[in-house]
């Protein structure tokens, strides 16, 4: 496959089309505007539907309708807009409908700013809507992964009938990098048993998340969801380890932070400090077992995030008291620098 220079937000769009997505509902919000614009150009050319909804709330509910109708469907937004989609995501989860939701995070809370940030980790990973549900959360660290993980997201969504959140940020969305476009996975998922298409030659299907009767009906639905989540936790964890085995200090970061950690590891190694990187790619299911194994024997772990400390909690839960865990966070759309990470790690050695 040829190498093409693509902007992150647009790479998501092209990858979605490669994955067979033919329905996209969105709404303008910086820093992800290139994606709806790209889809408005490309989807009509491939017989698809692009629709700019009247709000993010409407968009996520259009996604619910299209998904209930059996289509591969996507929406994208950024932090404030994703907050508006939380109820819809909970409904999608309760109705066990597949969908891909892209969040190119920006500085928050409130209106915040339009710089990239990572302050929506809890919202995405712990479930920002109501009820006990999970979304699979993928954390790309650049344009190549934005494309690759988008194709993967549609397969995961259909396989598990779940919402898959692509948790990027404004920086990697606005970045242009040379990438090779992923090939379609070729996986096909038969939705005829549940999708809505008009009850032709079959009993009507009903897609709903409300369960009123009998009394334990909702309990049964929830039990089925939890069983699904346990299966996903065993089967779908993704992570990357880099120079971690012989390292004394382990940096842990996702998305953009992980890129900065990678540079910090090289800088530290040049300065004679054996550092390594552990990068979760699935934030849910969180690769806690692999992290615990990677952390074994390390003197210290430094978690680096562009927030006030969110993933660090899951890191602590993974390693418990086996290794001390330190945190370095930047706020309000400011990015961590290699120098401050190197300085922090070197302070451990003194």
């Amino acid at each position: 496959m040829a190498v093409t220079l693509m902007k992150g937000n647009e790479a998501i769009g092209e990858a979605a089309i490669i994955a067979g997505c033919r329905h996209y509902f969105g709404y303008p919000i910086t820093p992800q505007n290139e994606l709806p614009a790209y889809m408005s150009m490309r989807l009509p050319k491939v017989g698809g539907t692009f629709l700019q909804a009247e709000s993010e709330v409407a968009a996520i509910n259009m996604v619910l309708g299209a998904s209930a109708a059996g289509a591969r469907v996507m929406t994208s937004s950024s932090s404030p807009g994703v907050s508006l989609k939380m109820e819809g995501i909970s409904y999608l989860s309760g109705a066990e409908l597949p969908a891909v939701v892209v969040n190119m995070m920006r500085g928050g809370p409130g209106l915040g700013n339009i710089a990239g940030a990572q302050g929506d980790y809890f919202q995405a990973v712990k479930g920002g809507g109501h009820g006990d549900y999970h979304c699979i959360v993928l954390a790309p660290n650049g344009v190549q992964e934005l494309a690759d993980l988008t194709v993967k997201a549609f397969d995961l969504a259909d396989q598990y009938r779940i919402v898959v959140i692509i948790l990027g940020d404004g920086f990697i969305g606005q970045m242009s990098e040379p990438i090779t476009l992923p090939a379609p996975s070729g996986r096909v998922f038969d939705k005829s048993a549940w999708m809505l298409s008009g009850a032709t030659g079959r009993d009507p299907h009903v897609i709903a998340s409300m369960r009123l009767a009998p009394d334990d009906a909702l309990a049964h639905l929830n039990a089925r969801l939890q069983d699904k989540y346990r299966v996903i936790e065993k089967a779908e964890c993704m992570w990357e380890k880099s120079q971690a085995d012989d390292a004394e200090f382990l940096l842990v970061g996702f998305g953009l932070s992980a890129r900065i950690c990678r540079s910090s590891v090289s800088a530290l190694r040049k300065a004679g400090v054996r550092a390594g990187l552990f990068r979760p790619i699935t934030l849910w299911p969180f690769p806690s077992g692999e992290l615990a194994r990677a952390a074994a024997g390390k003197k210290k772990i430094l978690v680096v995030e562009m927030n006030a400390g969110q993933m660090v909690e899951d890191v602590r839960l993974s390693v418990l008291s086996s290794v001390p865990v330190d945190f370095l966070g930047t706020l309000g759309g400011v990015t961590p620098s290699v120098d401050e990470i190197v300085e922090r790690v070197r302070s451990y050695a003194r």
Binding site: H23, N61, M62, V63, L64, G65, A66, A68, G70, V73
Partner: peptide, 9 residues
């Protein structure tokens, strides 16, 4: 909105 999504598919 849900009806829109269904009808478009």
């Amino acid at each position: 909105a849900v009806a829109t999504g269904i009808k478009r598919v």
